[in-house]
Design a protein around this nucleic acid. Structure first.
Lengths: 88, 88
DNA sequence: ATGATTTATTACCTCACGGTAATATTTTGA
DNA sequence: TCAAAATATTACCGTGAGGTAATAAATCAT
């Protein structure tokens, strides 16, 4: 379980462009924390061990695609692919 | 090289939600073709062999994240991550 | 401060990613 | 129809992804 309490601090970014594994890792960690979820929560829901989550959030470049997509989905997030510079 | 000529047929989707490796593969292949690029073109620009591109477009779930991101970038595409159902 | 919770690291291990290069198959254009 | 181009498949192979389980380190709550 996550710890507890209203510790919802910094402004939660609702969108981010992802070019690198590191950017993705940062975003996912921040988002997970903004939802007061622990890594253990994610591990429980997804099909993974702690190692994968740690490495994903750390921005490991070689994590496997579908696992990443699973985590994203399970966090209530989605990926959109589009032509570069498509305006919001 | 790609073959040639104005063979720009079916309507090119400019955005897609990506939930699975297969969806991504389909999108990337379609987009590549819409640009009249061959796999060899992509292989040349990216840092990969033919095997990776074939497998990526086929929707292999275990391809490595950063390689995928590289191909996306190099095709002039980008990924956006956002809360599910964020309206365009 | 201190115990509880969360996160990170490590060792062990199996399995398969993906590069290359050769070959096969499919698709395309004239 | 047929040759060229594009795509797919195969074998070979080194390297590393990631599950588990144990332990360590860091963070938090009171």
């Amino acid at each position: 379980m996550a710890h507890s309490g209203p510790k919802n601090s910094h402004s939660l970014t609702l969108q981010a462009r992802i070019q690198t594994a590191e950017e993705l890792g940062r975003f996912l960690r921040q988002f997970r924390q903004s939802q007061n979820l622990s890594q253990a929560d994610v591990i429980g829901l997804a099909n993974t061990g702690n190692r994968f989550i740690v490495e994903l959030e750390k921005g490991k470049p070689t994590v496997q695609l579908q696992k990443v997509l699973d985590v994203i989905d399970l966090l209530g997030l989605e990926l959109v692919i589009q032509k570069k510079g498509t305006r919001p």
